[in-house]
Design a protein around this nucleic acid. Structure first.
Lengths: 249, 249
DNA sequence: CGATTATACGTAGGACTCCTAATCACTCAA
DNA sequence: TTGAGTGATTAGGAGTCCTACGTATAATCG
């Protein structure tokens, strides 16, 4: 710690995240280039691969939005990928203006090889203790929602904005949440960041879900929900399994 | 949560961080462009501004390293900035090959306006609870160290690698650490990410410091230091203020 | 129904990024 | 003093990324 006047906490957090971002971007370049691609092209490949299992084809506009680039840039990169035979463009049957994007066989191969640039970050994350990992995921999800709220990011398919998500439904500290779609309880460590089954919650439900999640399972009527005891998956709770019976009235 | 087979936790963490990175980069572009700059140029300006108070001038090679780009790219960007009159290059008196970089008055102004691109992230971070902020900073610092260890990132001036850092010296949960340089105790919330007074610790000390920090203040002789109770700044501790007397033997 | 408005994609032009590889220029140790 | 190493720059080329504009299709409304 320093000789004085450290910047405010949020600023230091942002600076730290910026550093992670630098590592990520450098890793993207290194990996992509080894396969004759560029960082953006590899990112697109990775995005398409992640969505490959879903019926609805991704469109250029969505790619741009997800990657935070303009449509023009996305169009450029997609043309390059098409030229290299890694991506197939075909007219969307539903909309004559739109295009459906799909990986070719070669593209799928390239995506496997070069599309997983965040692997370096994942490696570093894997070195954290399980509890730290869960805590980090939880906090990252909160940040994502915050950015989304501010319009700084395209809507992500995260649990906290999903209609099926019931945070802190149960008292089991290891699995307090519930997904109504699969009907199973789970903990912070299982939160999704890009869930294929995500369905946006209507505004009111979204607000309610968020408040419950953010409060972190504090006693429901409490006036001072949190402030001190924020932590990993295993925050002790006052009483034991009363599960399934403590909805909001 | 999902229909099945979610990716492993570290992978999801990385994906989440990648999303934050997208937001950051988009924000960098938006802000920089509004001032007639590019993202990289603005980043360089921000870096120079952050180091402005220090006696030793930054050099092009260091800029490249900090930003995770090649020297050639850094050189390009610096030429552009010099052309715009925002950065002054002058020969380094210590080394005839090297250059010392400094912001001009205009450059300092531009840095203030466009150099703080992570502001968006900071804003989102500020919306977290204080405890969450401290926890996030702690985890980000851990990630930075992990990346640094893997050579994925230039050495950052973070407390955990500093010779003056004494983690978990005290039992006060709000301020367990100590900086030997300023001689004051502090908590996770005050951890630095780019401390001007940072001095790299020698390997052995570094390892020891890290283990103490990572263990998170678990009882010193414990066989199972952590695993469960990882958390914010305020994990309860067995006994009370015994400060200043519990070094490793 | 036909005109307007909005949407989806593309292209053009330009500054810049980002890489590898090669070239100067200087430092330092032998 | 010579040769290896280091710091910066340049050359060349593909690509990013932007702001406009085009062009085609879709949705909407009088």
């Amino acid at each position: 710690m320093p000789a004085a006047a450290p910047e405010p906490l949020p600023t230091r957090i942002a600076a730290g995240l910026a550093r992670l971002s630098v590592a990520l971007r450098a890793g993207q370049w290194r990996l992509a280039e080894a396969h004759g691609l560029t960082a953006t092209q590899a990112q697109i490949l990775g995005l398409l691969a992640a969505r490959a299992a879903e019926p609805a084809r991704l469109r250029p506009g969505e790619v741009a939005e997800q990657l935070g680039i303009t449509r023009a840039t996305a169009s450029d990169a997609l043309s390059a990928l098409a030229r290299k035979g890694l991506v197939a463009k075909r007219p969307d049957p539903r909309d004559g203006r739109a295009l459906g994007l799909a990986l070719t066989a070669e593209g799928a191969e390239a995506a496997r090889a070069a599309g997983d640039a965040p692997a370096l970050l994942a490696e570093a994350a894997a070195a954290l203790s399980p509890a730290d990992q869960a805590a980090l995921l939880r906090l990252v999800v909160k940040m994502i929602r915050g950015l989304q709220l501010r319009g700084a990011i395209a809507p992500a398919r995260v649990c906290v904005t999903c209609r099926y998500f019931r945070p802190h439904l149960y008292d089991d500290p290891a699995a307090p949440h519930r997904c109504d779609l699969v009907g199973a309880p789970f903990g912070d460590a299982a939160l999704r960041v890009d869930c294929a089954d995500h369905a946006a919650a209507p505004p009111e439900l979204a607000g309610q879900t968020w408040r419950r999640f953010d409060a972190g399972g504090a006693p429901h009527g409490s006036a001072t929900p949190r402030l001190a005891a924020e932590g990993g998956t295993s925050r002790p709770r006052p009483s034991a399994a009363r599960a399934r019976s403590d909805h909001d009235p």
